[in-house]
Design a binder for these strands. Structure first.
Lengths: 229, 229
DNA sequence: TCAAAAGTGTTCCAACTACACCCATGT
DNA sequence: ACATGGGTGTAGTTGGAACACTTTTGA
């Protein structure tokens, strides 16, 4: 049994980010066309390598920022993928992170300055390496998180309608929800603030805009959410 | 933006295992006295380094087997810990795994051949590095898993009493459960087989022994458990 | 006047909780 | 005979699910 540190194999440590967005109807992921070998030209998650001077959370944020200009978003470590030949060039272990971002705020820059593109979850192309597995796992984690805390305000603009919120949950969960039950439950949580503005784009009648109330949220969060739609 | 693989930093990849056991009354973890520097002599999780020829799951199993003689147990990847100075000797990222094992089957060998020792969760000594954080995270994952599938048959001997099962859940969840409600819920799941043997050790009357029914379980598992105590 | 989305409550049923007494046996 | 843990059922409450009509207004 040899325990000396320097007789051990080392590996490259990559970080790959699954970036979720939501755009009125569909849950989306952000992909880039890989501009280096191997698999140049194929679609890929946002990825990079861990540096000696940073931890994984920092690396994930740096990589996201670097490839998209985005900063300060919700990110969470997902899982580490380590099949021996997952990357054909080098032995690489990849730690996957997922993030939730608001597509409206971040659309232009992304698609223009960076060669990133949003894809509907259901229409995404095949990805390199084991990235498809990562996405699958991220979706299931996102669904779980849904029942744990009121996820996904990160995915919407600051002001949003009940209908948008509902559609977002439907997109995440992959099922239709009842309109009245949904509103009742959301209201029961008591973490929204109803503005007196209306969004006139989606209908003739117009629908009220709501905002997420951080104060109320924090008070609730203290004694632990549990939350089912 | 440099993408060449060989200009990247490499890191040591460690695997640390949180081994849970259950012994009549208390949830336990298995620790070893570290026999090499740094922090020689302090208590530690079971750990080792990833080899070039194996993936993380394999490494976790190898390490567990190597340090305890145990094979074929339930293990699951938990989280990767990566603070820059978490290990003072080398930049090391550690992937934590947790396992559930039956203490009765594995007690002798462990404490004798290997210098491993079981500690009650509440009485465990302070551990090296960030291992305490790992344990905390593992417990919360274990609690979650409890509501997802009938966890913890791994922790009991093949035949067990209702009371043992209940105590195990109480130990995991850290709260008392109502005897009658507990039995009703377990029976509603319909995954146990009642033998006609009795365990005479715990009481004068003796209590029936149950077994986990894998067939029934598999049929249920197909359409997704959801399970609350 | 019609089409399209917004808004709004009630009833029913299933699931969870709380709760107390008798039984079998060894000492 | 008594002390110890084993075993059993019900009533009340709560939370989730199903469900349909009226309102507003732009075209």
């Amino acid at each position: 049994m040899i325990h000396s540190y320097n007789s051990q194999d080392k590996a490259l440590l990559a970080v790959d980010c699954i970036i979720f967005g939501f755009d009125k109807e569909e849950l989306k992921i952000l992909l880039i066309k890989r501009d280096f070998e191997p698999q140049k030209g194929k679609w890929s998650l946002m990825g990079g390598f861990l540096k000696r001077s940073e931890d994984l959370d920092q690396a994930a944020n740096r990589i996201l920022h670097h490839l998209t200009g985005i900063n300060n978003v919700y990110m969470e470590q997902l899982y580490s993928f380590s099949k021996v030949n997952r990357d054909p060039v080098e032995r690489t272990v990849s730690v996957a992170y997922y993030a939730l971002i608001n597509t409206e705020e971040h659309n232009e820059e992304l698609t223009q300055q960076y060669s990133a593109k949003w894809f509907n979850i259901s229409e995404a192309p095949e990805l390199i390496f084991d990235h498809d597995k990562m996405v699958k796992k991220a979706i299931s984690r996102l669904r779980y998180r849904t029942s744990t805390m009121p996820v996904g305000f990160e995915l919407l603009p600051q002001k949003f309608t009940m209908r948008q919120l509902q559609k977002m949950y439907e997109a995440i969960l992959g099922e239709k929800l009842d309109k009245r039950n949904f509103i009742n439950k959301i209201n029961a949580l008591d973490i929204l603030h109803k503005t007196n503005e209306k969004d006139m784009e989606s209908s003739k009648k117009g629908s009220f805009l709501y905002m997420f109330d951080e104060e109320k949220y924090k008070r609730k969060a203290a004694d632990g959410f549990s939350f089912k739609l």
